[in-house]
């Protein structure tokens, strides 16, 4: 295995773990089926990109058109991406999370995901449309030898992953996390014991948005590119598959799911020669397999590989 491949794998793993931890907070813990999760990642990616890129009048960049182009130094673009993800969660949550029954929430979010992609694809002057943004500057690239930069980026990703994991574990293991789980189990009863479900959902939706935005910033800084084709709505379904397989409500499960589904699965299938069958057959079958994985797990093992832990308190009778 060469080091380029290993670096690539580690960075993708970090980004997917971050995303799955965030989705687990929303979906696994709080019960919000955020089918537009990938939109929040995309907002973070676009924001980080236009904050770090030079204006679109700059010589090498004039083949694309976009807003912003502020050329801000690292880590401002990543922070900006995270904030943008959180900010987007406010209006979306306001429309979706207040009055609608949970299954309608899911559908509204799914539709939002499809529409957001359509709009960005067609509105070219905003973020360069379907072609997307290229030549996104890699953070602090000029401080490193290109040969060692990959290791640096792995380190950066690892720090962010650790930070997000800390946040996720603190939330899940806190009384606040318990309140979120109670709301997931029975919203009306949670209201009857003084919990405000709208406020609870909004906070965790924003937290998830911030983390998703950060994951987008990390990803775009590495692949130095971002376009509508990388955030189509099925990308969210992969993350759902990961959380369902790993174990809803369990942080370690989310990490495991991220390693098994988006990372492991994609890596394994890369080795299938693409010359088999008509063009597009292998990727299409990958999607079919993702669908089967979701349905199979929901049928045979809905709690996932690592189920949500039952909490036993100190001093409990045996």
């Amino acid at each position: 295995m060469n080091s380029y491949y290993a670096i690539n794998l580690l960075i993708y793993a970090g980004v997917d773990i971050i995303a799955c931890l965030a989705l687990n907070l929303q979906f696994g813990v709080a019960g919000i089926v955020n089918f537009s999760f990938i939109v929040f990642q995309a907002v973070g990616a676009y924001t980080a990109a236009v904050l770090s890129m030079p204006p679109d009048t700059a010589p090498d960049y004039s083949f694309q058109i976009y807003v912003g182009g502020l050329q801000l130094p690292f880590p401002i673009p990543w922070i900006g991406g995270a904030i943008a993800g959180g900010l987007l969660a406010v209006p979306v949550g306001f429309v979706v999370l207040r009055k609608l029954r949970s299954d309608y929430q899911a559908i509204a979010l799914l539709v939002l995901s499809v529409i957001a992609n359509t709009v960005i694809t067609n509105a070219r002057p905003f973020l360069n449309g379907a072609a997307g943004l290229a030549l996104v500057p890699a953070p602090l690239a000029d401080l490193f030898d290109p040969a060692t930069y990959g290791y640096f980026y792995v380190g950066l990703t690892a720090i962010c992953t650790a930070l997000v994991a800390l946040v996720a574990f603190r939330i899940v293991n806190s009384p606040y996390g318990r309140t979120l789980r109670a709301m997931r189990e029975h919203e009306v009863a949670a209201t009857a014991i003084g919990k405000n479900p709208v406020a609870l959902k909004m906070t965790i939706f924003i937290v998830g948005g911030v983390i998703a935005g950060l994951s987008g910033g990390i990803l775009t800084g590495y692949i130095t590119f971002w376009a509508p084709s990388v955030w189509l709505y099925p990308e969210t379904i992969i993350l759902f598959a990961a959380v369902i397989v790993g174990g809803r409500g369990n942080n370690l499960g989310a990490v495991l799911g991220a390693l098994l589904v988006p990372v492991g699965f994609e890596e394994v299938t890369r080795f299938i020669p693409s010359s088999i069958g008509p063009p597009g057959l292998i990727p299409a079958l990958q999607w079919v397999a993702i669908g089967l994985l979701i349905i199979g797990f929901l049928w045979f093992r809905p709690e996932g590989v690592r189920p949500e832990p039952r909490r036993v308190f100190e001093g409990a009778p045996d």
Binding site: R181, A182, E185, H186, A192
Partner: peptide, 20 residues
């Protein structure tokens, strides 16, 4: 309280109390 059972099913009994 409710006419139909409205426990938080996948919280433990103790957690059902603590959460309130």
């Amino acid at each position: 309280t409710f006419q139909l059972p409205s426990e938080f099913a996948r919280l433990t009994v103790l957690e059902n109390l603590l959460v309130a």
